[in-house]
Simulated assay, not measured.
Amino acid sequence: MQRAAVVAALLVPLGVMAPVAASAAEPVQSAELEKSVVALHIRTVANVRYPTEGGGEDVVKEPMVVEGACSGFLVSATGDIVTAGHCVDPQEIRRDLIIEALLYMEKAKQITKAKDWLEYAAKNWDVEGGSKGSKPETRVRITQPESVGGPVKFDHNAQIIDYKSFNDGDVALLRVSGISGALPLPIATQDPAVGTKLISIGFPAAVGRVIDENQRASFKTGTASSQQTSPKGVPQTEVNADLSGGMSGGPTVDEAGNVLGVNSFLLRDQQNFNFITDTTDLGAFLRQHGVNPVAPRAATGDDASTGNNPLPAPAADSGGGFPWWLPGGVALLLVLAGGVLVWYQRNRTRPVPVEQPAFVGTAMPQYGPQQPADPPGCDHRNNPPGARFCNACGAPLSR
């Protein structure tokens, strides 16, 4: 999936003469960035209703609770916050609630093999609030560690203004009140070129499990690896900064502190492949909702002149004439390289082909879609009176 080569992206800047910028900003400090990054605690409580035999219905005895952790960042001085769309997407939360209900019923021995029921339940079960037909309430709490000295002095409840689902761009806008002195992060105006140095910021859940409640943000350095497009035509940037669960929604910035995208998802293969959202799409999404992004800061170092293009400019001619030694040196290198290649082909250990692992992203389902069909030969016998599901195969007895 997404195997587009990055060769073209690397070749284009090679032919560009890049003048040295007259002045470049100093790299932004982590302490300054940390004041603009927030932790998100997301909690939803809901009742799950399911059909029973004879056309009836029932509710799982206990309300289901789903809690999640994501990251976000301030994009205005008045409390506008960006995070990943999948963190607050009602459909993602609904799926998690149904999974919790299935696991609860499996433990109570009302069904067997909860994962086999996921596709059926997702289509036929209802998730609702305190009253039948009402929407479940999702609360998003915004926090910052006290030691950061940021604008979030105590926990704030955030309003979900809008979101794009994982497949449509994976970005969301939240809004909180009662914040003053916020330092919004500037948004870059173009996607990073391959090789651009960057920093991905967020609150990894794995770190949160081994430290106290005042978890500080983690900073993962890396570079832009490629520009890709999803099957639905949504642009994405691959980065080699290590992302992990809980960092979703945090910013990935360049060395000047300009946001290049929102931490989105990763693929687990023999190594992780990490992705952030599109830069220009983020700016358009904010302007669509009346948030004018802060203008980007001047680039730093090698990135200063070409819009985050990290490739160096060709060296100026020193006037020393043609280097006559060069052809002989190149020929010698080719002979040596040929000898090494022959030795390698004769002596290398040929790898055993490895089956390509299935796509696994942080925003993707934990269970694969499976049909809850009856196994061959199941006659639904030996079930206790009043049973709603077959103990042998887990199928609803109303079918």
Rank of each mutant, 00 (worst) to 15 (best):
A5E: 09
L10C: 11
L14C: 10
M17R: 13
A22E: 13
A22D: 11
S30A: 14
E34Y: 00
A39H: 09
Y50M: 04
Y50S: 03
E53W: 07
V59S: 06
E62L: 09
V65G: 05
V65M: 08
E67K: 15
E67S: 15
V75T: 05
S76Q: 08
I81C: 01
V82T: 06
T83Y: 03
H86R: 06
R95W: 00
L97N: 02
E100S: 15
E100R: 14
L102W: 05
L103Y: 05
Y104V: 04
Y104G: 02
E106K: 08
Y120S: 12
Y120H: 15
N124D: 09
G129T: 09
G133D: 07
R139L: 12
R141M: 13
Q144K: 07
P145E: 10
P145R: 13
V152C: 06
F154H: 10
A158D: 04
I160D: 04
S165D: 12
D170T: 07
S177H: 11
T189G: 10
Q190S: 13
D191K: 06
D191H: 04
V194C: 02
G195M: 05
L198F: 03
I199P: 00
I201E: 00
G202H: 03
P204I: 05
A206F: 04
A206W: 00
V210M: 11
V210T: 15
T221F: 03
T223F: 02
S225D: 08
S225C: 08
G233K: 09
V234T: 13
V234H: 06
P235D: 09
V239C: 04
P251A: 09
P251L: 09
P251H: 09
T252S: 15
A256F: 01
D269F: 08
Q271D: 13
N272S: 14
F275H: 04
T277F: 00
L282T: 06
H289D: 05
G290N: 08
V291M: 06
V294F: 00
A295C: 05
D303G: 03
S305R: 05
T306M: 08
T306Q: 10
P314Q: 11
D317W: 04
W324E: 13
L326P: 01
G329M: 14
V335A: 14
V342K: 14
R350I: 11
R350F: 05
F359Q: 14
V360W: 03
T362G: 13
Q370N: 07
N382H: 13
N383D: 13
G386Y: 05
R388S: 11
F389P: 00
N391T: 07
A392V: 10
G394D: 00
P396M: 11
L397A: 07
